[in-house]
């Protein structure tokens, strides 16, 4: 018995070890997957529609989508100009204002109101650049929601959205 032993036995050990490892890995799948959003949360994250008609110029509203605050700003002429009269290359996160709004709807700025530093909610129409100011660690965003000064590394993110009509958008 023992003369045939080593190779046969080694194979057996390796095979069993491999099967055991597969089992352990498979066991981890449900244990990890259960922490991902469940299907009711996913379903609740469906797109939402927002009516823009009641928002007057100079006003900003906050809506929630997937648990995130979304700022919708009706910008004035001067705010749009302020956002466009900047040397894009000089910005920390260079991006033209035109790339951050939908063409033909330049007055509407739709951004996710979460500071790109560490996730606080910036206050609209405040700070040195008249856009947003994050009180947590002092990040200043301009009227296009771009980072201008402070520790935040990137511009406020734009959520996926589309204009259904001139006064209605769907977010998501």
């Amino acid at each position: 018995m023992s003369s045939a032993g080593p190779t046969r036995r080694d194979f057996l050990f390796v095979a069993t070890g491999a099967v055991g490892a597969i089992g352990a890995a498979a066991t981890l799948v449900p244990l990890i997957a259960q922490m991902n959003p469940d299907s009711s949360t996913v379903a609740a994250g469906a797109p939402i529609e927002v009516d823009l008609a009641p928002i007057t110029q100079g006003q900003a509203i906050k809506v929630f989508w997937r648990g995130k605050p979304i700022y919708i700003e009706h910008r004035s002429k001067s705010e749009i100009e302020a956002a466009r009269n900047v040397d894009v290359a000089s910005l920390p996160d260079p991006q033209a204002d035109q790339a951050r709004v939908k063409a033909g709807h330049d007055q509407w700025l739709v951004v996710i109101g979460i500071c790109t530093h560490l996730g606080c909610i910036p206050i609209a129409r405040q700070g040195d650049f008249g856009g947003f100011f994050c009180p947590c660690h002092g990040s200043h965003y301009d009227t296009s929601g771009r980072i201008r000064q402070g520790p935040a590394p990137a511009n406020l993110a734009i959520p996926p959205y589309a204009f259904l009509s001139d006064s209605k958008i769907r977010i998501g």
Binding site: M1, S2, G5, R9, A15, V19, G23
Partner: peptide, 22 residues
């Protein structure tokens, strides 16, 4: 999976213990 695993473990057990019976 469990049947394969149990089968493999059975043969390992036999190997390990057969050595002893000899």
């Amino acid at each position: 999976f469990l049947i394969v695993l149990a089968g493999l473990l059975y043969f390992i057990k036999k190997k390990v213990w057969s050595h002893l019976h000899d």
